[in-house]
């Protein structure tokens, strides 16, 4: 297979995610864009599993190098990222909902960063 296809897909997804983070006002939409970015990274990790292993094709692997068999580091990391993403979304949405409870709005550019702004 041509590894460049998933790589480029992942790059474009990442760019779309950045665009979304910078463009969207609603906090929940920003979180959705962050999810896109994380997925792009995951895709790269999984594709790297394939290409790296293929790049090491004619390399003589030492016996002690892989005590547990062929590693799937990319995939394992992708799993970890998925778990982290889930935790992050949970906590993030808790914050968003709390903010909504206080301010009745979820626009990110209305978040007051200073005490003097918070009075208004």
């Amino acid at each position: 297979m041509h590894a460049v296809i998933p790589y480029v897909t992942a790059a474009l997804l990442f760019g779309l995610g950045v665009y979304g983070v910078l463009r969207r006002r609603n906090a929940i939409l920003v979180l959705m864009a962050v999810e896109l970015m994380l997925n792009a990274v995951n895709l790269i990790l999984v594709t790297a599993d394939v290409t790296v292993r293929a790049a090491l094709d004619r390399v003589q692997i030492e016996a002690w190098a892989y005590p547990n068999g062929e590693p799937y580091s990319g995939g394992v990391f992708a799993l970890f990222v998925i778990v982290l993403a889930a935790a992050e979304v949970g906590v993030g949405l808790a914050i968003v909902l709390q903010f909504y409870r206080l301010r009745q709005a979820v626009a990110v550019d209305e978040v007051a960063l200073h005490a003097d702004e918070a009075v208004r």
Binding site: M1, Y7, V8, L13, G15, L22
Partner: peptide
Amino acid sequence: PALLVGAGVGLGLAVLLADAFRWTVYALP
């Protein structure tokens, strides 16, 4: 700003990766 940065990031990464891997074929694992 979002367009600039997003396009820059996305296209930049795409170009980088395409340049790195070209059209090489890898075996499916």
